[in-house]
Write a protein that binds this DNA or RNA. Sequence first.
DNA 1: CCCCAATTAAACAGGC
DNA 2: CGCCTGTTTAATTGGG
Length: 693
Amino acid sequence: MMVESASETIRTTPSNQNGVSSLSSQSDGGGGREGGSNGDTNGEISPVDLLHLQQQQALQAARQFLLQQASGLNSPGSNEVKQSPVQVPVSMAMMSPQMITPQQMQQILSPPQLQALLQQQQALMLQQVQHTHTHTRTHPLLLDPVPGWHQLSSKQLAFQQQLIQMQQLQQQHILNLQRQGLVPLQPTAAMQSLQQAMCPSDLQQLWKEVSGVPSSEEALKQAEGLDLSTNSSNSTSAFPKAASAHIPLHSMPNGQSHTPKRDRARLFEWISSFTKADSGDDHVPLYSKGESPSQSAHTHEEHASSHPLYGHGECKWPGCEALCEDMGQFIKHLNNEHALDDRSTAQCRVQMQVVQQLEIQLAKESERLQAMMTHLHMRPSEPKPFNQPLNLASSGSLLKRDSEAYPEGLPHPPTSAATPITPLRQGPSVISSSSLHTHSHSHTHAVGPIRRRNSDKYCTPIASELAQNCEFYKNADVRPPFTYASLIRHAILESPERQLTLNEIYNWFTRKFAYFRRNTATWKNAVRHNLSLHKCFVRVENVKGAVWTVDEVEYQKRRPPKMTGSPTLVKNMISGLGFGSLNASYQAALAESSLSLLNSPPLVTPTSAASLNMLHVGHDDVSSTVEQVNSNGSCSPTLSPQQYSHPVHVKEEPTELEEDSRPVSLLAGVTHSLPLPSDERDLEEDLPTEELE
DNA sequence: CCCCAATTAAACAGGC
DNA sequence: CGCCTGTTTAATTGGG
C-alpha cells in the first residue's frame, strides 16, 4: 500500500515526466491535440496545474464531507434502526475517516460530484491564484496527498467574514419571512452537492427526531448533525459557502456562549445563508404556493384552506399532523406549537434540506430522462423534463434497434434542460459509485494509472457513465474507470468504419480523456499491449497500413462477468441506474414510481429493452453502452448513426439474443431487486454472455 | 494460497 | 539511426 502510493507519487513528479524519452515525439504524432504534458513542466501556473489544484481541493472537500457524514449525522440519540445515513459505500463509511484518502474519495464520489466540488472551489481558487500567483505552483496541495485545509485559511476567512456580514444583514429579513412561513429556498452550491448524499428517508428520520426534541440545545445539535457543511474541526476550506454558513452555529466571531437566543439567531443566520447565494428566480417558497409549477409539484401541499400548512383538517407542519377542526384552530395551533423557536427553526432547516434533496434528485432524474429520450431518438432537445414521462410510452415506438448500433446517441445531454435548481451541475449525474471504485489510487496528479480493473467486474453501466460523463472525463484529469480494452473497443466501435489505426486510437484517448493527455508513453504502451494481447482486437491490413477492429464475439467471450449477486453489486447496479445518491428504500420507491411510468407496453419493445439492458447486463464496459450515448455528441467527432457494418463477423451476438428473449428483463430486474437484494438472481440470469458461454 | 485479469515496463523485431 | 508499430515476456497488484 504505502509503497505503492509512494511509487505513484514519484511517478507523478515532473522529473519523471521528463524522463520519458520518446514522449514528446511519440505523443500525438498523428496530429492529435497537444497533450497536457506541458502542463506539468514548470514556471507559470498552467491550466493543468490549476485543475490539479482544484481537484485536490475537491478531494479534500469530499473527504471532509465524508468525515462528517460518518460522524456528524449520527447525532446523539438518533441511533435507531436507521443505519448510517451515509450515502457512501458502506465499506467506506465503516472506515476510519482519517483513513480516507483523496483516492478513495475519488472512488466514492462520482465524477459529477467531484466536479461539483471542484466548481465550488473554483472561484476561491481563482482568487488565490490571482493573489498568490507565484506560490501556487508549489502549493502544498499539489504535493501533499493529504494536505491540510489550513492552506486556504486566510482567503477563506476573508470570504467567510463577508458572508457572515451578509447573513447578518439579512437576518432581519429572514425573520420576517419566517414569520410568514416563507423562506425563499436557494440552496448554495455547496449544499447542493453535499445534499446529493443525503437521502430523504434519513432526513425524515431526522425530522422525527427534531420534532421530538424538547430542548433547544438538542434541536440545535440535531440541526448541526444535519449540517453537512463542515464538521467539528476547523477545516473549512472545502466548502466556502457552506462553511461560512455554518460558522454562526459553531463559533461566532466573538465566541458567544450558547444561549437559546443565540442559537436561534444562529439558526436564522444559517437559514439566511441559503437565501443569499443567488438572486434566484427559481425560488421555491417553502410552504406557500409555488410559482413554479414543476417545482411546487413535489413540495406538494394541498392548499386546502388558505394556509399551505393546513390541509385535510390537520397541520401539515412536518412531523406534526395535529388535528385542527378549522382554520382558526389551526392558526392557534400554529402559533402555539410552531412558534418561532429553535425547534421550529431547526425543523425548517431540515425541511429545507429535504426539499433540496428532492430538487437535486429531480434534476438528476430529469436529466437522465433527457438523456434517455435523446438516446432513444425522441425529440433531442426537449426542454421540458418535468412533465414528460408519459411521452415515453407513446414515443416508444420510435425506438430503433440500435442497442448496438450506436454511434447515435446522446452526446451527453446533461446540463440542458432539466436543471433548474442546480446551478452547479454540469456533468451528468449518473456516475455509479461502483465505477468510482475503479478509479483506484491513481487519480488526479498521480500520473501513472494504477491497476484497477474493476470496470469489468462491477457490472455497472459504466458505459452510460462514460457517456454521460463525457465532458467530465474530457476535462478532469481523472482516470476513467474502464480498462484499456474497454476503451479501445469503444474507440474503435465508435468510429464510422469501426476501425481505427493505432494512432487514431491514441488520439481518441487524448481527445476523450484529460487523463490520457499525460504520460503518454505509459498508456500508449498499454494500448499497444492490449491490442496485441487480446484476441478481440483484430489487426486488419488496409490499403494504407493497418487498422484495428474489434471482434465482438471474442470480446464478449473473454472473462465472463460473473456477477455473483452480491449486495454490493446490486447496489452498484442500482446506483448505476441513477439512484446512486439515494438510499435503498428511496431508491426502491423512486424506481417503482418511475417504472410505473415506463411500464406501459409500448415502451417495452425488444429494442428498448435491449438498449436498457446494458444497464444491468454484465459487461459494463464502455463499449456496450457508451456507444449509445456520447458517441456523436459533443464528444465524438464523426459518426454514422446506425450504420453498423461489422467489419468483423458477428455471429450470435449475445446481446442480441438477450434482446429478444428478455425484453422486459430490466424492468423486472429493477423492480424486484430493488426492494429485495436477494433477487439479484434475476439479474444474473439476464446476463447474456453467461448464457451463451 | 492460487488463479486470473489488468496494468506497467521493457525487450525486441520490422518497416519506414 | 530513430521512430512507430506490434509482439512478447515478466513483474506487480488485486479480486475472487
